[in-house]
Simulated scan of single mutants.
Amino acid sequence: MTNFNEYHLNPGAFPFLKTLQDKWQVIRDEFTSFLNQASEEELKFTYDVLGPKSQTIKTKGSSKYSAFGILFQGLFIDEYIQLHQIKYPDYSAETASAKALALREKYFPNLAQVITEVNFVEDNLLRNVYFGTFHPGLDIKLHVNYNPHMNRGYLGLIVPEGDIAMKICHDKLYWYEGEFMVLDHSYPHCPHNYTNCDRTVLVVDFFKPEMPRAEVIAFEQEQVAQRMQDNPYSLGVFGKSDKAEAADFIKYGLAHQLDWDKALS
């Protein structure tokens, strides 16, 4: 029986997540079909443009984390690019937005539909929805995601057997295909993938339902404005505040990470 606490939350407390969970195989199949069918140009554009880029979250060695998605800060990515007029080295905002829309309609219609359904009923509760892949050997240093207005759900899509886990505070948690793991990411955490296979989940960030909506929207707007100024390719997901303090390493029994964390600073 799973023990939940203030940072490892019961998915059953968020019934709107079931709409996504019920479609997990359809969502997984859209992801795998995209990887198998997309052209080299489409793949390059996707990983260059449609994924949040962090300047603070570091990985150990040459191991990689890749991500791309279709919803950021409550807007589909094509709308988000237009709103912020994000300029890319190889694309104007207008070109990037048009390409993003075309890819969503071509490869992810079911995911887009279920997001629309949930946000229609739940008053735009979903904020970020993207695919996150841990490649073999991944080891991310201890950090926080300073999003105190949101929780993060992970819907397992492709989860091979082996040591693929999330260390958060005093717990070591595992993903399972077709199930949600829900965390409060404002607590220190460090995930890893010590297998020879990729692990992919659907990352779903959503407002904390118990917080006043006007308050969380105001906080999000202020936070996103700062993050986009610091790094427009963060898509408002990551920021300079996503850094654990040395005291956190010690408090949560993860002081062994301090040596290589200092090397990555």
Rank of each mutant, 00 (worst) to 15 (best):
F4S: 13
E215S: 10
K60I: 08
T59N: 08
E222C: 09
V237N: 07
A244H: 00
C190S: 15
D48N: 14
L202D: 05
K172W: 05
Q226C: 04
Y176F: 15
D22G: 06
E179C: 10
Q82R: 15
L235F: 12
S66H: 11
N196V: 08
K18I: 03
Q113M: 10
V159E: 11
L83V: 05
V237A: 13
S39R: 10
W24D: 04
R152G: 10
E177H: 11
C169E: 12
M166W: 10
P232E: 01
A218H: 01
Q55C: 13
I27Q: 01
T200A: 13
F134H: 00
L173H: 06
L103D: 00
G132Q: 03
D261S: 11
Q113G: 14
I70L: 10
L9Q: 05
I158V: 15
Y252Q: 03
A96H: 01
K106F: 04
M228W: 00
I86Q: 09
S186I: 13
A214E: 14
G156H: 06
R104G: 05
T32D: 12
F72E: 04
N124F: 08
R152A: 11
S33N: 12
A100F: 04
V121D: 14
I250V: 13
I57M: 02
Y187N: 14
P232C: 07
L173C: 12
Y176Q: 15
L258K: 06
L9C: 11
F31A: 04
T59Q: 08
E179R: 15
V118H: 06
K251D: 06
Q82M: 14
W175Y: 08
H192D: 09
P136K: 07
P15S: 10
G178Y: 11
L20R: 03
G236C: 01
A255S: 13
G69K: 01
K23L: 13
E117V: 09
A246N: 11
E179S: 15
K208D: 06
T46W: 02
P11L: 05
Q55E: 15
H256P: 02
L125C: 15
M181T: 12
K64S: 12
G12Y: 00
A96E: 06
Y174M: 14
G61H: 01
E30I: 07
A100G: 07
F45W: 00
Y80V: 03
P188K: 10
T46M: 05
L258M: 09
S241K: 12
I164H: 03
N231E: 11
L125A: 13
V237C: 11
F45V: 04
V159H: 03
A165P: 01
D139M: 02
K141F: 05
G162V: 03
V216S: 07
G132P: 00
H135Q: 15
F4K: 08
